[in-house]
Design a protein around this nucleic acid. Structure first.
Length: 502
DNA sequence: CGGATTTGACCCGCGC
DNA sequence: GCGCGGGTCAAATCCG
């Protein structure tokens, strides 16, 4: 039952970030005058939120079941969505013997059913819109590719533009036989290419089409070798059969900074430390951890304190879990996924992207932080800065030579925007018009939903995030038969998320 | 005693 | 080619 509580907490993580005393202490405190208690390990998604969440475990369970039915009929989000509206308010009356209450309860139940229907149709609409646009984009890029190939055969190195970019970004989890090579000379001048590939095979036709496209492309038929971390060759060779889907996502990172005295943050996963090194320019050592929740899980994380402010803990996650995640880890994964999706969206370097982000941002009543894209880093990295107040609208700032910074609604809808179709930050030749339009339409749709029911928003966001961002929707490892009751924990499309507490 | 951590060595990419 | 730095490995050590 604790698990349900965790999920509940997560989906209200926006409120969590505001309400959690420990967090707010940190977030509102930039002077270092923290009242937080020192913990050995900071639990970002603390389970102890019962005071905020009325209802017994059983009640929570019921509410979770009810809400999960909302999404699993059409889309397996892999999440047991729970909204405070549909869940708690209903259940609060369950035990009341009063008939009037009962009838009122039924009425509310019906209302919620209607609401669920609407939301489901909305989701369908989004899905349909997504597919349509996807098809359009594919067609367009295909056309362009054919044209360009005739003209530019042999000039690929000089034109890392839209075609390659679009392919990279559109190709989600390349089939084993289709692998994107970010080291392809034609794109090697821009490492952010790596983030273009995202993760979803949710739309079956998509992967097929994309695979087709990729296989058509010269230079894309190279094997997954180039996708694997060049620094971990063994990782890809040891388990070629199962690593293939993972490898392409290893390089994108999401880094989260937060204030914490704790040496580690609790993200629900089990980690084993495998190394520690002194990083240049930082007196604090960097620790390397790998996920030990499942054999061969490629996820790793780095933990390091900020050199400038040692109260800031920087944790960087990288890779996708190849196993079901416990609720707490699911929360983390979702958050990471959202951030990574933002990274993957690449929308942030284009004016459209920025405007889109900033335009939808006000619609999120949830935790927002600063996300900084760093295209100049060795790996494309998105940094979530939780060291600032959650609701502080910060001016754009740059932490690296040319990153784009934008407010990031942590558990909000950036996943939508972060769909693999979107361009990478440094890809100016992306068919940005289509993408921009898609952004806009999605944002509008999504914000409309948000406006109607903020509580549900977070849950829906997570659902959509999972739906659109789950890298291995077809491998069955995460979305099916999850013993922990987390069918299909949101998987981060190759991300690293650094979480720190405020 | 088994699992986790520590830590020096090693590998590899990159820049000069 | 060489050195540097990041990342990983694996033997030694620690700890419950």
């Amino acid at each position: 039952m604790d698990k349900q509580g965790r999920e509940l907490v997560f989906f209200h993580s926006g409120d969590f970030l505001r309400q959690n005393p420990g967090v707010s202490d940190h977030t509102n405190d930039s002077s270092g005058d923290h009242t937080r208690s020192i913990t050995k390990e900071v639990d970002f998604f603390s389970t102890d939120r019962t005071s905020e969440l009325p209802g017994t475990d059983q009640e929570k369970r019921i509410s979770t079941i009810g809400s999960s039915s909302l999404v699993d009929s059409s889309i397996n989000t892999g999440l047991n969505l729970l909204t405070s509206n549909s869940g708690i308010s209903i259940i609060a009356n369950v035990k009341n013997p009063d008939n009037n209450e009962l009838s009122g309860l039924q009425g509310e139940l019906e209302r919620l059913h209607d609401e669920n229907k609407k939301l489901r149709s909305l989701l369908d609409q989004i899905t349909k819109s997504y597919r349509d646009l996807q098809a359009q984009l594919i067609m367009a890029t295909q056309k362009q590719t054919q044209g360009n190939r005739i003209e530019q055969k042999g000039e690929l190195n000089d034109t890392p533009g839209s075609i390659m970019s679009a392919q990279h970004l559109m190709d989600p989890r390349p089939r084993p036989s289709v692998t994107l090579d970010v080291n392809d000379p034609s794109v090697s001048d821009d490492k952010t290419q790596e983030v273009l590939v995202s993760s979803t095979n949710t739309v079956g036709t998509k992967s097929q089409m994309l695979g087709k496209r990729a296989s058509m492309e010269d230079g894309l038929d190279q094997t997954s070798q180039s996708w694997g971390s060049s620094k971990s060759p063994k990782l890809e060779h040891e388990k070629p059969d199962e690593q293939t889907p993972e490898v392409p996502f290893r390089k994108a990172r999401v880094s989260v900074r937060a204030r914490s005295d704790a040496p580690l943050i609790s993200d629900g996963c089990q980690w084993r430390k495998y190394g520690q090194k002194m990083a240049k320019g930082n007196p604090c050592p960097r620790a390397y951890y790998r996920c030990t929740m499942a054999v061969g899980c490629p996820v790793r994380k780095q933990v390091q304190r900020c050199a400038e402010d040692k109260t800031i803990l920087i944790t960087t996650y990288e890779g996708n879990h190849n196993h079901p995640l416990p609720p707490a880890a699911t929360a983390m994964a979702s958050t990471t996924s959202a951030a990574a999706a933002m990274l993957l969206s690449g929308s942030t370097t284009s004016k459209e992207g920025l405007s889109s982000s900033s335009s939808f941002y006000p619609s999120f009543p949830y935790a927002s932080t600063m996300a900084t894209l760093s295209a100049s880093a060795p790996f494309p990295t998105i940094t979530l800065d939780l060291t600032q107040g959650p609701n502080t609208t910060m001016p754009f700032h740059r932490t690296s030579p040319s990153p784009a910074t934008f407010p990031l609604p942590l558990h909000g809808f950036p996943q939508l925007l972060g769909h693999p179709m979107y361009a990478s930050p440094k890809l100016p030749a992306i068919p940005s018009v289509q993408l921009g339009q898609r952004h806009a339409s999605m944002v509008e749709t999504v914000t409309a939903a948000i406006a109607s029911d903020p509580n549900f928003t977070a849950a829906l966001a997570a659902a959509i995030s999972t739906f659109m961002g789950t890298p291995r929707s077809s491998d069955g490892a995460n979305n099916h038969n999850a013993p922990s009751g987390i069918p299909g924990s949101p998987q981060l499309p190759q991300s690293c998320t650094t979480f720190s507490t405020n």
